[in-house]
Amino acid sequence: MGGTHAVTHLLETAEPAREMVLQRFPRGDDAAARHAAALTALDGLDGRTPRLLDADPRGRRFGEPALLISRLPGSADIMSVSPDGMAVQLGRMLAQIHAVPLERFGGLRDGVAAAAASAGGSGGPAAAVLAAHGHRLADQPPVLTHYDFWAGNVLWREGRVTGVIDWSGASLAPRGFDVSWCRFDMVLLHGPSAADVFLKAYEEAAEETVPDMELWDLSTMARSRRTVETWHPNYRDLGRTDLTGAVLRRSHTEWTGRCLASWGRAERPRL
């Protein structure tokens, strides 16, 4: 439950007793190949990511692209974890991901370029700011980027993070790419204060500040502007039935306005 890209099944065997996860992707989708490459390089991330057991990225055996991966303990949970507890643990987990040495990875796509190509054109309240200053983001050093780091792609058990799933989008991008995306998720789930708690926890764990955080937040608002209303099934399936398309759109509009105001305050001394 909670995902819309791949069809996901739990497989259980009796002898030997084992649990595995089968993911089936749409025909022609290259996400299975990208997912398999990322999991191979991550090598389990100290037990925090699934291990790749088998892959059929072109669907030659299975009829459609498919992956078989190990099952991590825990489940997606956006209901029972406290807002601040969730924000702190997500921040620390993301810092751990961004610390993975890039030498493990070969041929990862450029996440900023991929996001720009799929954005469907510019526009919206943040467009003018990004047109004038967006180059500052692309010039920042890259890290391993999950590309869709939000609470629903994190597994929990008894209020603690047990792992991170859905690595099909793994890319190279500056750290602000993931940080701003998860900040918006925190806004949708628990409000702006949770987004700030998340950022503080991330920067403390990473021992790095995120350059141009206000500009990254605006980038996420532009990136999500056309699709935010379609996210409601992901939240609904995980228990947040209150986050309807209309509520998500309203939150997007309000956070965009807040981000523009933050950008104005941050840039005033430079102008």
Rank of each mutant, 00 (worst) to 15 (best):
D237E: 09
G239P: 01
D237P: 00
S122I: 03
T49H: 05
W216L: 03
W216V: 04
D148E: 10
L248I: 12
A14Q: 14
W156F: 12
A55Q: 01
A41F: 03
E19L: 14
R226P: 14
P141R: 05
R51T: 03
G63R: 08
T227L: 13
R236A: 10
V164I: 08
E103S: 15
L243Q: 04
P65K: 01
E19D: 05
D46S: 11
R265D: 13
R183W: 02
S171V: 07
V164D: 10
G91I: 00
H5P: 11
A128D: 12
Q96P: 02
L45I: 06
V154K: 10
R136P: 05
R175E: 08
R136Y: 00
E64G: 01
K200R: 14
D46C: 04
A66N: 00
D43C: 12
N153P: 13
A201T: 02
L130V: 03
D242E: 14
T220I: 12
S262C: 04
T40F: 06
G44K: 05
E254K: 06
R58H: 09
K200P: 00
W181G: 13
A95T: 03
D30A: 11
A87H: 04
S122H: 10
P101H: 12
A37Y: 03
R27I: 02
H135M: 04
G257C: 01
W167H: 10
Q89G: 08
G44S: 08
A87R: 02
P141G: 10
V81Y: 10
Q89E: 12
E204V: 04
K200F: 05
V247D: 11
A37P: 05
G63T: 06
W150E: 15
T256V: 12
R104A: 14
S80C: 13
F184L: 15
D242R: 03
P192A: 15
V88M: 03
M221F: 11
A261Y: 02
W167C: 03
S118E: 10
L189S: 14
L260N: 03
S193Y: 13
V197R: 13
E203L: 01
D148H: 06
R157T: 07
R268N: 13
A114N: 01
S251M: 12
S251E: 14
I165L: 07
N234P: 01
G121L: 06
E12G: 09
L188Q: 15
E19V: 11
V7A: 15
T49S: 09
H35C: 01
A99H: 07
G74F: 11
R175A: 15
I97S: 02
W156T: 07
A55I: 00
E229N: 04
P233S: 01
R265Q: 13
A170Q: 07
D43Y: 09
E64T: 01
D110A: 09
N234C: 07
A195S: 15
L11Y: 14
W156D: 06
L45G: 07
A131M: 06
T145Y: 04
V210Y: 01
P57A: 06
F198N: 11
A261I: 09
W167D: 07
A37V: 02
E103P: 04
D30H: 08
G63N: 09
E19A: 14
R249L: 15
D212S: 05
L172T: 11
V197D: 05
S180N: 09
A205C: 01
R268S: 13
M93G: 03
R160K: 14
A37N: 07
F25L: 00
L155C: 09
D212K: 00
